[in-house]
Structure formats: structure tokens, C-alpha cells
């Protein structure tokens, strides 16, 4: 299984760089690596990459700055790989433009799963811009007809629930921070009131999940936000 997507590993710890590089090669992904933020930015500007694995604790600059700089010109998927695990830091990285966040230590399986999701998400974004029907498992949404169906059955949802669901489908596999969702659903200036979103989410889950405490579709990332499961 040969892949063509080029991945850049930005990590100052040689051991982890080697291990990630090996894992990627095993999976057939070509990759390059950088051990400083400067070097990473140089490579990103000059080369063609499809995904970045970024460590936040770099010797020269903070990884957050790399995210901000890259986002000035590119929408390339960025997966943050960091030893920092404060919820606020995760949310900051995600709000700053990162696509996903992986806390060290992690397993090779988990890393590959996240990479696959991110790549699929970005290729869908770039390839078929006009896609209007998305589906995950038995749940699907038709953005043109404004319809949601579950296991082939038409599902009745309120306009708010529909907005929420379509937001997740348009960002499939990506963690959406609570802040971001509130801004998208209720509009800017709504503030930081998470109560309404929690209630809306609970109501939507009662419609799409068999057991709301064991969600199949919309997963909770406590302290950060939500994610629509991709597989």
C-alpha cells in the first residue's frame, strides 16, 4: 500500500522522530522531518506537503506560532503531537487552526488512525468541493435537501439540530471546540454559555444514538469539545 501524501514530522526528540518516521514508512507514507520551528517553516514553504505532525515544545519557537504562521497561507492539515495535556492548551491549539491533537505518549495505531482521518478530510475538501451528501455508519445528511436519515429512515430534526449536525459533517473527524461550535451555531457575541449547547447536544444524541452514554457518532472530548466519529 503505497501512498503519495507527503508528511512533515516536526519534532525535536530524535527517538520519537525515528519512531514516527518508521511507522509512517511501514504504512507506506513518504515523510521528511524537521527538529526546529524555523526548519519546519522553510521546508513547508519550499516543499509540497499534505500533512504536518507538530510537536508544540520546540527548541526555537513555540509550536503555536508555527500553527499561526502556516495558517496564514495554507490549509494543510496539522496534527499536534504534544506532551502538554491541559484542556485549555488543546482548545487553544485547535482554535488556532490545528486539526487534531494527540497527547504523548500515544500508540502507533492511534497515530495512524488520526492521520488517515485528517487526510481523508482534507482530500474530500479539496477534491469534491460540491459534495452534498455525507454519511457515517448509518447516519447521513443531505446538505442540498436539508435532510437527515438514520439507518435508511428519514429522521426529523429541528433546524438547530440540523445546523449542528451539518457543522459536524463538514468537519468530519475533526475536534471542534465548544467555543467554535457556539460561534458557528449561535453566532458571534453569544459569549461562553455552554448550557444551551449541552442541552442541544443531549437532545440530538437522543435522536441519533442508541445509548447517549455510549455515543457512536458524536464523541465528547471533555474540556475541549466534540468530534464526529469518522469510522
Amino acid at each position: 500500500m503505497k501512498h503519495t501524501e507527503m508528511i512533515l514530522i516536526v519534532e525535536d526528540d530524535a527517538q520519537i522522530r525515528n519512531f514516527i518516521a518508521y511507522t509512517l514508512k511501514q504504512e507506506g507514507f513518504p515523510c521528511q522531518s524537521a527538529s526546529t520551528a524555523q526548519n519546519a517553516l522553510v521546508q513547508l514553504v519550499s516543499g509540497q506537503f499534505d500533512l504536518v505532525l507538530l510537536d508544540l515544545g520546540l527548541p526555537d519557537y513555540d509550536g503555536m506560532e508555527v500553527i499561526h504562521k502556516v495558517r496564514e497561507w495554507s490549509q494543510i492539515p496539522i496534527i499536534v503531537v504534544s506532551a502538554r495535556d491541559m484542556d485549555s492548551e488543546k482548545a487553544a491549539a485547535l482554535d488556532g487552526g490545528a486539526d487534531d491533537y494527540l497527547t504523548k505518549p500515544f500508540s502507533a495505531t492511534e497515530l495512524m488512525a488520526r492521520i488517515r482521518v485528517a487526510l481523508r478530510h482534507s482530500s474530500r475538501f479539496h477534491g469534491v468541493m460540491e459534495q452534498t451528501v455525507y454519511s457515517v455508519g448509518g447516519l447521513s445528511i443531505d446538505l442540498e435537501k436539508h435532510q437527515v436519515s438514520l439507518d435508511g429512515q428519514r429522521l426529523h430534526v429541528t433546524p438547530m439540530e440540523y445546523n449542528l449536525l451539518s457543522l459536524f459533517f463538514r468537519n468530519m473527524g475533526k475536534v471542534l471546540t465548544t467555543q467554535y461550535i457556539i460561534k458557528e451555531i449561535y453566532g458571534p457575541g453569544y459569549g461562553n454559555d455552554t448550557q444551551a449547547l449541552r442541552a442541544l447536544m443531549a437532545a440530538l444524541r437522543r435522536k441519533i444514538e442508541k445509548s447517549p452514554a455510549k455515543p457512536r457518532y458524536i464523541l465528547t472530548e471533555i474540556g475541549v469539545g466534540y468530534r464526529l466519529a469518522d469510522e
Partner: peptide, 15 residues
């Protein structure tokens, strides 16, 4: 600081 080397050890042994 233990997390990063641990990630390396776990990842490498997995490898």
C-alpha cells in the same frame, strides 16, 4: 519531561 521519552520507548517497542 517523562512523557516524551516514554512516548519514544513505547513507540519504539511497539515498532
Amino acid at each position: 519531561d517523562l512523557r516524551t521519552p516514554l512516548a519514544g520507548i513505547m513507540g519504539t517497542s511497539e515498532m
